[in-house]
Computed example of a mutant assay.
Amino acid sequence: MFTGIVECMGSIAKIQEMDMSESGGQGLSVIIKDCPQILTDCHIGDSIAVNGICLTVTEFDTNTFKIGISPETVRRTNVGQWKETQRVNLERAISNEVRFGGHYVQGHVDTTALIYSAEQDGNSVVYTFQLATKDKQYMKYIVEKGFICIDGVSLTITNVDDHKNTFSIAMIKHTQENVTLPLKQVGTDKVNIEVDLTGKIIEKQIVAALNDQIDNVESPLANLINTLIDKKLSSR
Rank of each mutant, 00 (worst) to 15 (best):
T3L: 07
V6P: 04
V6R: 02
A13S: 08
I15C: 05
Q16W: 03
D19K: 14
M20G: 05
G27P: 08
G27N: 05
L28S: 04
S29F: 06
I31S: 08
K33S: 11
I38N: 00
D41M: 09
I44L: 15
D46F: 06
A49C: 01
G52Y: 04
I53H: 07
T56G: 03
V57T: 03
F65Q: 00
G68W: 12
I69D: 10
I69T: 08
S70Y: 08
S70T: 07
E72G: 05
E72D: 10
E72M: 04
R76L: 05
T77E: 10
N78D: 14
L90G: 03
L90S: 00
R92I: 01
R92N: 03
A93Y: 05
I94P: 00
S95W: 03
N96R: 12
Q106T: 09
G107T: 02
D110C: 05
T111S: 05
T112M: 03
Y116R: 14
Q120L: 09
Q120T: 08
L131G: 02
T133G: 12
K134G: 06
K134N: 10
K134V: 09
K134C: 08
K136V: 12
Y138W: 15
F147K: 10
I150Y: 03
I150V: 14
D151Q: 02
D151V: 00
D151T: 01
G152S: 06
G152P: 06
G152L: 03
S154R: 06
T156L: 11
I157F: 06
D161T: 04
K164H: 15
F167G: 11
A170W: 01
T175L: 06
T175W: 08
E177P: 05
P182T: 04
D189A: 02
N192L: 00
I201Q: 10
K204G: 11
K204Y: 06
A208D: 12
D212K: 15
N216F: 01
E218P: 02
I225C: 13
I225V: 15
L228Q: 09
D230P: 07
K232C: 13
L233D: 11
S235D: 12
S235G: 06
